[in-house]
Amino acid sequence: MDKERQQQAYENYVKKKTPVHNLPANMAKAFVAGGVICTVGQVILNLCERMGLNKDISGGWTSMILVVCSVLLTGFGIYPRIAKWGGAGTLVPITGFANSVAAPAIEYKKEGQVMGIGCKIFTIAGPVILYGIFTSWVLGFVYWMLKVSGIVA
């Protein structure tokens, strides 16, 4: 009990001693970086719709093109440099997801096609896919129950 209190005290003391990033400045950078990426997405979306594609297909093209750009920028080592400046602005958009797939794929190629790239390509993105699919499954199950019981039309 006493030890726990001491550890807590040390943790609090360390927190006070440790410098942190300037939050407003970092938020402003994230705002700009994220805003720019989303605007690029909007440009692609509008172009697709102007070409007569429907909403879903346009969304698909937008994701695909943003992913390609992010993977290329990751390969050339540029995306991490943008991220150092843009922080969450580069993590939150789908380009951040693509980066989290491309980075381990490139890094672990030295460990082989299967155990290297194959397994480790999912090290960061795997949880996103798992919990995304699981959450949507739970929600879908609830939706199905409500439908079957007649609560939702």
């Binding site: 942190v20 939050l23 938020m27 994230a30 994220g34 805003g35 990426i37 605007t39 939150v92």
Partner: peptide, 17 residues
């Protein structure tokens, strides 16, 4: 798209920092 996308990112920056 710019300001809302940017805002979502800025809010997540709080979580990170």
């Amino acid at each position: 798209a710019f300001w809302i996308g940017g805002l979502v990112c800025a809010l997540v920056q709080i979580l990170l920092d």
